[in-house]
Design a protein around this nucleic acid. Sequence first.
RNA 1: GCCACCGUAGCUCAGUCGGUAGAGCACCUCACUCGUAAUGAGGAUGUCCGCGGUUCGAUUCCGCGCGGUGGCUCCA
Length: 637
Amino acid sequence: MTNNKESRQETEKKEERFSSLEMLRDRGLKDINRVLAVRVNGELCDLSCSIEGKEVLEPVYAESQEGLEILRHSASHVMAMAVKELFPGVKVTIGPAIENGFYYDFDYERPFREEDLPKIEEKMHEIVKADYPFTRKEVTSREAIDFFLSEGEPYKVELIEDLGAERVSLYSQGSFTDLCRGPHISSSGKIKAFKLTKVAGAYWRGDEKRPMLSRIYGVAFHDQKALKEHLKRLEEAKRRDHVRLGAQLDLFSTHEEIGAGMIVWHPKGGILRHVLEEFEIREHLKRGYEIVKGPQILKTELWKRSGHFENYRENMYFTEIDQQSYGIKPMNCLSHMMIYNSALRSYRDLPKRYFELGLVHRHERSGVLHGLLRVREFTQDDAHIICTPEQLDQEIKGVLDFVKDMMAVFGFEYDLEISTRPEKSIGSDEDWERATRALIKAMEENRLPYRINEGDGAFYGPKIDVKLKDALERKWQCATIQCDFTLPDRFNLAYIDRDGQKHRPAMIHRVILGALERFIGILIEHYAGAFPTWLAPVQAILLTVTDRNIPYGEILRGHLKDAEIRVEADFRNEKLSLKVREAQLQKIPYMLIIGDRECQEEGLTPRLRSGKNLSFMKEKEFILHIQEEIRQRREGL
RNA sequence: GCCACCGUAGCUCAGUCGGUAGAGCACCUCACUCGUAAUGAGGAUGUCCGCGGUUCGAUUCCGCGCGGUGGCUCCA
């Protein structure tokens, strides 16, 4: 590679050296065109990097995860070059690859708009077509700073200063040079498929006090097919969008007049919530939880005592009654503490597991609200477990089992993360140690794989976060299990142990589904609105073929209702195919066809929403069939 | 909160370079009594998100507000 003089020169004193690309070619590697970079003794490098020949070389292919990241990172450089050419005076900042693509943040006299994107894409295509080589150059920080000062790039200068490194690497393609660790693809022509997707504002280094930059997002792939598939996935996600389906299936609505982040539940959404709540209550009672209920507003004095006023005030709503200030609860814990403290507790009473489907209000910033997934009023399946320190392990394990059972019911897979002590935190080392160990121990005993997030715990204790994965492999956080040492202390919780002395109990704060609103939003997208029968707002719909069948239809409806089946009837004088279509669009699990034959033989012919027809059934037979399916909480087959 | 985009009939959306608006579906009426994803014909439907400004005239342009969508360190 002739355009790699610099790195060559640096190492010229050594004997003969090769580029890793040459070496791979020498070794007879096939598909060399699909190789974007290389691992040299385990470290990612450019194809042009020079080596001696003894190293272990592993090719990084375009379609691998690492390959994609390199490709996308390079695409962000190409985009930056295009933007610099099109918008003189623009300042570049950072532009990494991200999970599904890449972005680059710019500082320009005006923010970029969606309509700027086609122009930028066009320029990028030119750059790709020109196939500029990416070249790497190592320089001292001083040289790099001088270079970027002369280029009028203050953000780059700041980055280098903050790095504080002796030397940094620069990558150039064509007229564009960027500070970058690399590695990169060998030339811009390797970018076979890309698309700019959106613009957004983003603060310099994520800090609200610093300038608002203009971010452009894009996706890039190793070939057109992969890009098309990605766009298809986006379409699929749009098809499953819970806001759209929520309106189509008549589940809920929101109203400008009512306020942002407030959900209004329609009858069909109402029954869905009810089914979930009933299910939750039953599952909690089974596991030794007790149902409690606290008031919606509590004196501000109490929120001061708990620390919420100090730490959580911006997220709370307050009101005043008889010159007394009250806070609308953003969490349910305070009442639970008061319940515990309403009597002197013995070690024999523990653990106490207080469960509340608690309605809470949190003033989320307007910009983060979204459908059911981020709202200002929601219901948590919240519980506080108060136990002796010795019982902590067992209780955590119990909650993890609970999570496992519940996720299985909905068919969610999930990952677990343990977050450990953050820098800013309270409590003794001993407590943290014990709690963290308890979390880890519970994971190991359940043989659950987990990741550790160092320093990402709550300020009062470590936690386990459950990230569930839906049908489109998207991750959502719902369940969380937190150890808390602050509240037991602040509320002076105690129990009398065998020794006759007062001791401080441990406390676990946990939710399983999290917020019902959010969980339902996820469920809608997970099932694409086609809820399994036990959850479906309407489980079956009776469809008559002609008006003659209505009297028997009425009888059937009565019998199904008696059997507690959520049944509706479409007895309109319409064609059967129309009724089937409408029931199908409502994603009703069972369409029960009643024609003359069914009337005569006192039965029905079920059609599943999958399109499959079952054979004629006597009504008793059908009732048993659907009841069993509901009982097992499984999808009809 | 900040940035970008958006807000037209119940829904999905078109339209107006400033002269008060349209299509499909849904709805209503009538005919058809029909067997597994749209029967036909006719009819009604709008403070063009709100308030203010510019203008002879604003749904259209400008400002402010309300609401929605996507973002706001996955560290060169």
